Simulated scan of single mutants.
Amino acid sequence: MRVAIGSLACLLLLPAAAGAGEASPALSDPTPAKGWIVTLGGTVELGPKYEGANAAGLSFMPSISWRRAGEPESFSAPDDSLDYALYETDRFSFGVAGTWKSGRYSSSSPRLFGMRDVPWAIEAGLFAEYWPVQSRLRTRVEVRQGFHGHHGIVADFSADWVERFGRLTLSGGPRLSLGNASYMRRNFGVSPSEAMINPLLAPYSPSGGAKSLGVATALDYAWSEQWSTTLFARYDRMIDQAASSPLVRTVGQRDQVTVGLGASYSFRLDL
């Protein structure tokens, strides 16, 4: 925990430390044409220890993105997966996406006694974005296949209204998440043998369907062309097959809240 709190303190102090040094060259300068803008970042989150949990934990997630010098920075929500566009226009983009998900371990709670562990997983797949109202309303869908911890398929749908006020960007909108039968059974199912060991849990074998419905919001402030910080919050309500699971209904909770603080640094790379 001391490591995570230290990371949070660093994120808060980074913009101030950057302002104390010498000014960097303008990232918006389009010359030379072969230059790239690379953005490195990190986010500290406080959220559910696993899907459907009634206890929270701290986590840290790094990020990286890049764009050609002179190109405006594209909008990205804090809960977007890492992605790379294979095709892109002013309003539409399509490409590959991937993310990392922490697992569920019986050692994290006495109420999970007898449950099999669900290890961490990498989810990789495709994304598509469309702006019905250019620069204001973004819609996005991600479809990802799990590896290691689970081998199911997840589909996430989101929409964000984006308002810019100088250096300040406010965004937010609804979220919907679905999972196929393999994903739901792995994360929300209870086998008869597990139910025999843990009397709090009844056997449960969910089918594919809706997992959660929620809303997310973010507040981003650009301290300079190099430094920016982001505050965000997300609320999810477990629904349908996930809400009926004993792991949620009996030993967890349907309401899931995540808050976070992120910081990013952009620099120019001339090639």
Rank of each mutant, 00 (worst) to 15 (best):
A77M: 10
A155E: 13
T169A: 03
S244R: 14
F267A: 07
N187H: 13
A23Q: 11
L219N: 00
S76A: 15
P48S: 11
D156R: 15
L14Y: 14
L200Y: 02
S264H: 13
S63M: 15
E73W: 04
A243T: 03
G41D: 11
P206D: 15
L112E: 10
A33H: 12
G146C: 05
R175P: 01
V38N: 11
W131V: 00
V96K: 02
L219Y: 00
L46Y: 09
G189V: 04
F147C: 00
S264R: 15
K211W: 05
S81T: 04
A18N: 08
G260Y: 12
P203H: 01
L14G: 13
K49E: 12
G6Y: 06
T250S: 14
S24I: 02
H151Q: 13
A202T: 01
G47K: 08
G260L: 10
L271T: 06
A195G: 02
W161K: 02
R234S: 05
K211M: 12
E51V: 09
A202F: 00
R234V: 05
P30M: 11
R111T: 00
T31N: 10
Y221L: 06
T217P: 00
A233Q: 08
A124C: 00
A210K: 11
L58F: 14
G252R: 14
A18E: 14
L178R: 04
V3A: 09
F94K: 09
S74G: 15
L213A: 15
H148F: 02
N198F: 06
M196H: 01
L137C: 15
Q241I: 04
T250W: 04
D236M: 08
F188Y: 15
T43I: 09
D90I: 00
N187Q: 12
V251A: 12
V190T: 10
D29A: 07
S102V: 10
L271Y: 08
G21F: 05
